[in-house]
Structures are given as C-alpha cells and as structure tokens.
Design a protein around this nucleic acid. Structure first.
Lengths: 229, 229
DNA sequence: CCAAAAGTGTTTCACGTACACCCATGC
DNA sequence: GCATGGGTGTACGTGAAACACTTTTGG
C-alpha cells in the first residue's frame, strides 16, 4: 500500500469491445473471467490504467495481454462512471471499440483471462459488470459510424471483392443493399483501387479484387468529399 | 493523506465546454484560474470527481460551483489521458460540453475561479492545460451534431422565431441558409408548435413564435423519422 | 410613406431507388 | 453444358437548391 492521496480516488480501467467479421457474420471477442468478481462469466477485455501510460496505450496493452491482438483499429467510445458498476469499489472505465481483420489474426487467452472466444453478435452470453450495455453502445456506434466513415475496411482483408465489401455493410447495417446501386456508388467515390488480381479458388467466375485507397480518401476529404453509404 | 492504494492512480477530473448564443454569435464560458498551475490563465470550468458521485453529477456540480449554472443540457464529449497534460501529476479528464440559453442565465464566479466570462468563439484567449484542444473538439462535435439532432434548441429561448432558429444554425455551421428552403424543411418536419404569439418590441412586422415539440419529435423518431438540417 | 423584416411557390437538377439479363468460369 | 455468382444500364421519383416579390408593421 505505497500510494497515498488526500482524497479518495476512483480506480480507472479501460475496456474494449472487439469486433471481427467472417463468413458467418459479425463477431465479438470475449474473455472468460478467471478471477472474482464475476468469475467464470464472459466479459469484454480490459484492465487497469497504469499511471505512466496513456488511455490508448492501456487499451492496446490490455488487448495484447488478454487476447494477443496487436495493431488493431481502436477508437474511444465513452466513459462510464456509474457508482455501483463494480462491486469491489468505485471504478470508472474508459470504453473503446476495436475492429480487426479476422482472417489475419489468431487469438489467444492470457494472464487473468482463462479463455478468449469469438461470439456471434446474435448469440451473446450475459456479460459481467455493465458490459452488456457497453457492448450495445459499441454496436450502435459501429452501425452509425460505418455509414459515414470508411472504418468498415478495417474488418476486411486488404484485398477484397465488391461482394465482400457489400456483405460487410449488409451484415453491420442489418439490411440488404442493391448490388448495382452499391457498386455504382462505391466506385463512383473513387476511393477504391482496382487491382490486377481476382479472387482464387472459387467454383465460378472469379471476382476482381480492390484495395481501399486511404491517401486518395484523405485528399478527397480535404476537398469537401463526404464518404457515405 | 488518508487514502492508500496498492498501485498509483491517476487523478480524475471533469471539464466542461459551455456554449451560449446571443445576438453577437456563439460564446464560450471561461473562468480565470485563481490557483496554480496556470494561475491567471483562462480555462474551461471543471474539477475533481468525487468518489461518491457519477461523472455527470460531477460535471453538473462543478458547473454550478464555478459559474452558477444549473439544469443545462450536458453531454459527454471524450476522455483525455495524455501523460503530461497537467504539470502537477497524472490527471485524466472526462470532457463534456453544455448548451445554455444565454437569455435565461446569469453567470457568476465562485470557489477557486476568480471570474467567469463569456468569450466570442472567434476571439478566444489561449487556455490553460490542453483546454484549447478540448474546446476545439467540442466545437466540432457541436457543428456535427446540431445537424442531425435537435440540440440547437437548447441554445434558444423556449419561444423563438424562425429567423432566430435559422440564425442559430447559420452561426454554428458558419454558412448561410436559404430562408424559404429552411422554413419549408423545418416546418415540414412537424416538430415545431406554432404559437398564438408574435415577438414584441420590434420596429417592423412581428414574427410568429414557435416552440420545439419534444414529445412529437420522440414520437416521430420512433417511427423512423430522422431530424436533419 | 418609408424602412425593415416577415412570409410565401415554382422550377431545375442531382441523386437515390427499383429493377433483369448476359457473361465468365470451374467442374 | 450447367450451375454459380460476376458484372452491367436505364427509367422514375423524391428531395435539395436556386431564386424574387408582396405583405405587414412601426415609426
């Protein structure tokens, strides 16, 4: 008990909702708690902020320690400071959400998490603490933001087909999009680079591959362009 | 020094960017710091979060203590945890922004603030800490959000003319709007109640007064309606 | 009667939406 | 040659944007 303060201080944690996408749909990465409170319950990864690391760094570190994930897209969601959200003591948490390319990443459990597993968004267990609410907020943010910011590409491989891109939006927004209108719109934006490659190992005509052109996106944005699906 | 913890903890504060509107334009409420660090510099109101109050409560309390403001519209902006943002020690702050009806509120200084003053957005002093950045973020949020959420009404009197409403949007968005198109659009939404009153004491034809109909807005929103300017 | 702002409609254009068929490829 | 998904164009309707004059009121 080496640290003393004149006034009581809330503990400060970061928690991170990690979204991933595969053929089955949108997934969330959860860890099984190895310690009390809520031992054995599923939770979103997170942990205490150290006094010598920034909030973003804390979120990245916890993500790596508990799930092995590195270099993911990460964005602050909100900060929750309800009085009784942790039974032990007053804990304020800065919530983040992350988007990862499921195809690229292996996930492992570590430290105080017993196991890390991907759950389908439509088949989630009840979570520890107020993590259900945080997850719900994160999903709402994702649904809203994917429409006017090109963050959806963070869920896809670097090279993708227009079909994959459209499916990603259909899954996240939970509604069908018209194929021709979608292609017209997204290609018309001029932020996709058409590659001299097609997808491999398909039992039908192979689709062309594209890449998101971030530099061009930024250039257009400076000129008043607004991404919108 | 009564409170001891096993690990060092960052201090936790709330800071609040308060926007107000009058004939001259958009204003921000700043306080002059009476204590070190940054003694004598202007800052946005804020202070330490107590261990037994929620974040929102802390923001409301600080606002009242430092400026006398009560019952304002308040929304969380973001949380900043840069390592050296406070020269004394590690301080993480949860930033808020508030919207107040300038016509209704008297402002007073109190506690550790020497003075509270409204500054025009285009004539701001250099602020203490990283408050310039927080203020900038708050302004960007306001500009973005005012377009798709009816928060702009929080800056106007309860009864307002369409001209006042349009001016509010023109000031915040920093561009002119077409009078006829604006009136068509806003009246077409059906969220304004036309009153049997007109403005008083004007040296020309008096304009009709309207009120924002929050209940109707909520009803329409449930049916899929989207507010948008 | 003059100044000042309130109030009001129509036309045009861009963009979103709906919709169906042929083509390329692998097996 | 057949099954599977890739790739393409047009017509229609809705809503945004541009635009100017008459009315009301107070001084």
């Amino acid at each position: 008990m080496a640290y003393k303060y004149e006034f009581a201080r809330p503990a400060l944690t970061v928690d991170c909702v990690v979204f991933g996408l595969d053929d089955e749909g949108l997934k969330v990465l959860l860890i099984e708690r190895a310690l009390e409170p809520f031992r054995g319950r599923w939770a979103i990864p997170g942990g205490f902020v150290r006094v010598d690391e920034s909030l973003d760094d804390a979120a990245l570190r916890e993500l790596q320690e508990e799930t092995g994930l590195k270099k993911v897209f990460l964005e602050q969601l909100c900060t929750v400071g309800t009085l009784d959200r942790d039974p032990r003591e007053r804990v304020v948490t800065v919530a983040y959400y992350a988007l990862v390319r499921l195809s690229n990443h292996r996930v492992q459990a570590a430290t105080d998490a017993r196991e890390a597993l991907w759950f389908a968004m439509d088949d989630l267990p009840t979570l520890a603490f107020d993590h259900d609410q945080i997850l719900e907020s994160a999903y709402e943010r994702l649904q809203a933001k994917v429409r006017y910011q090109p963050i959806g590409f963070e869920l896809l491989p670097n090279k993708f087909t227009l079909r994959q891109l459209q499916s990603m939006y259909e899954i996240i927004l939970d509604r069908e999009l018209d194929k021709r209108n979608f292609r017209k719109k997204i290609l018309g934006m001029g932020v996709l680079t058409e590659l001299d490659e097609v997808e491999a190992d398909v039992a039908h005509r192979a689709a062309r591959l594209y890449r998101f052109n971030k530099a061009e996106y930024r250039r257009l944005t400076k000129q008043g362009f607004n991404f919108e699906i």
